[in-house]
Amino acid sequence: MTVFRVIGVAWWLQLKMRSRSAFDGLLGILYPLFFSTVVFMMFTHGGAQGPALLSAAVGASVMGVWSSTSTTASAALQQERRQGTLELLVAAPTPLPVVILPVTLSMATIGAYSLVVTLLWGRFVFGVDLAVQRPVQFVVAAVVTVVSIGVLGFLLAVSSVRYRTAWALGTALEMPVWLICGFLVPLDLLPAWTRPISWLLAPTWGIDAIRAAAEGRDTLPSLAACLGLAVAYGVIGSLLAVRLVDAARRHATLALT
């Protein structure tokens, strides 16, 4: 119970902190709009209409969630290190994974704002018809996707406890994940060797569940796969975090000095 309380309070404070920064807050919402605008233009000029355009809109919105998570998650711990708080976090008795998870969840939450903004942008600027067949399942699937992206970000963040330039890796992953998770491009169009990677990425299943809800298909299988993978990321990330902190204690890489 207390673990959930820590995660909840930390998530709220992190969100507060991020939404006060023009960089994380404003840009986190505006920046994806540039990409979604391009996407909307490409698809409308390609003649996409109705459900096909909605499908692209959904993809463009989830792209923003991953952007705001991947580009900041890997730098999150660098930032803590720079401001001298990483040592304080490690020195606290709460296990580090419980401290980091809410950080990346807050990033995904900012991404969730951009998800809503992108859908509205599509609706009012590009006339996307937001005719969702199963609205409740649509929202549930969106929330699960956002959480799963937050946990994937957690896995990414954990890997940067030790490596000072891991942020570059995180940002390089931004567009490959857009592509491989089938946010915009059907998986069949991609080379066959990418398929197993797609299946291992929770957002692949998340976006599929969101589309299923929009089209009135059964969301449950994809939703379950998405959640299951998210839990697996959480477990792997936690184990990794513990090992990485041990290594950091051995090699003195917690402080910037």
């Binding site: 490409m42 940002t171 490959p176 592509l179 491009v185 059907p186 169009l189």
Partner: peptide, 23 residues
């Protein structure tokens, strides 16, 4: 990551998006 992987990923992403959109 920033000057090689990033730009290549951007090219691939938009080229495939173009294929998907049919433009």
């Amino acid at each position: 990551p920033t000057f090689i992987v990033g730009p290549i990923a951007q090219i691939l992403f938009f080229a495939y998006a173009g294929r998907a959109a049919g433009v």
